[in-house]
Design a binder for these strands. Structure first.
Lengths: 257, 257
DNA sequence: TGTCATATGATGTATTACAAATTCAAGCCT
DNA sequence: AGGCTTGAATTTGTAATACATCATATGACA
């Protein structure tokens, strides 16, 4: 593996380092492309590809005929979750707390601002989610993500939907519950969730932000609890089978392609 | 203004669109660079710069001698705010709502989980922020960001701090209030903010999550109101001076170098 | 059948040339 | 003097070509 870094990558990293350690200040003009070619002893092709990357990251701006400049706000305006972290239980829980924060407010704003069409859509999605229970073998722990996205849509603030969509991969893993829990448990599981969903929907339909806040908070706190319970079952099952699998390993295994 | 889009940008957008609408599937091999040149009727320089961007976004990977491929996980596991959007008032408000969601919960969790040292630190930062009022000329509308960061620190969940830090550039712009508002107004402004801060701090010290929620919500809703009021003043002043500057232009102008 | 050399085709890098946009100053006009 | 035009110089944007390097497929050879 470990491929040799391309010249382009080297130049790009060096330049972005210069920006972030302050030797190139926001707004400042960079050396011309030809000067950079001399400094790095590479061709203009390389410099330009490197610059293209930094430009798409918003670190540089370049204007034909004038030159290249450090962006006025070069400091990372992106928020990323390194995929290593997503597979550990503590990280998943920490991120679920972040999600709870967003979703509680999302439910409240949705209750305030939803259109009638939003409300109808949300109820429809809830019913679709319920209908999906007919398949007894496979369930996603957060199989109800579409429901949550529909609510975010109703806030009329696109950032809520975008942020939730961004968090989706963290929660969209599938679990084969059948290997873990009895049918009875699943029934109970679905029953609980439906009840929780329903009280959220009712609050949104009645345009009661406070009630929506509360119902969503309850739902996600319970979700957190269910996640923890499930993880305990997994660990117990592994121990019974003589394995010593941690929850994170489990999450990796069931990861669907 | 409205600069003509570069060919590079056009190609990059088209390719990323192909990925996201599914006509190019994860893991699939792309046409060769020369083929893309023919398709788009541009030079290889353009194609390569476009690809360089997509590669840095993690959408494509290219291997020397083999070809270019759509990444297996092209779907952005990063959340970014494009800097163009940050300069418009509606966007700023929308993002402030997102921030409110995070911070209300942040205050609550902090009240629950803070260490004694966290509590001391928060109060200390609040007092430092107050002390800064001695400088009568310059104020940042959200000069109190450190205070909010200190609270996020107290949640014991690193993602709250990280997310807030990520949003900081959106709110860390400086305003020269002196050209806009009277000294009296500033006094009142600071007075209000201090009162709001204090009730948050008290709630956290008393470990009362519900009160912390409420206090933080009040503070940020008022912040939202102050931002709107300020924007109205700016527009009014411009109109008086015979200009027709929108708030977004204003934000660009006061941009500090 | 298995192995190695070679051919082939892909991306990576270099070089050169020209197009288009911006700046700046000289020079002209009023 | 002040404002305007013009053109040269500079800089990024695009194009075209050549070669280097890496990966794979092919086919000869044992």
């Amino acid at each position: 593996m470990a491929r040799r870094k391309t010249l382009t990558a080297i130049v790009a990293e060096d330049l972005s380092k210069r920006v972030f350690d302050g030797s190139l200040k926001p707004g400042e003009q960079l050396p011309t492309e030809t000067e950079l070619c001399e400094q790095f002893e590479v061709s203009r092709t390389v410099v330009r590809e490197a610059v293209a990357q930094l430009r798409s990251d918003g670190i540089l701006v370049s204007r034909q005929g004038r030159g290249m400049f450090v962006s006025k706000y070069p400091f990372s305006s992106k928020f990323e979750l390194n995929s290593d972290a997503l597979n550990t239980l503590p990280e998943t829980i920490a991120i679920l707390e972040l999600r709870l924060a967003i979703e509680v407010e999302s439910a409240g704003l949705c209750a305030e601002r939803r259109s009638d069409e939003d409300a109808r859509n949300i109820r429809r999605v809830m019913e679709e989610v319920d209908a999906r229970h007919s398949d007894p073998d496979i369930v996603e722990v957060h199989y109800d993500f579409e429901f949550h996205l529909a609510i975010a849509q109703g806030t009329q603030n696109p950032y809520f939907h975008r942020f939730l969509k961004f968090l989706e991969p963290t929660f969209a893993r599938r679990f084969q519950l059948s290997t873990l829990v009895s049918q009875d448990f699943k029934e109970q599981y679905y029953e609980e969730i439906h009840t929780e969903h329903n009280s959220i929907v009712v609050a949104i339909e009645e345009q009661d932000p406070q009630a929506a806040h509360n119902a969503m908070r309850v739902h996600l706190l319970n979700s957190l609890g269910r996640l923890r319970a499930l993880s305990r079952k997994v660990v117990a099952k592994d121990r019974m089978d003589g394995r010593e699998t941690s929850f994170m390993d489990f999450l990796k295994d069931v990861d669907t392609v």
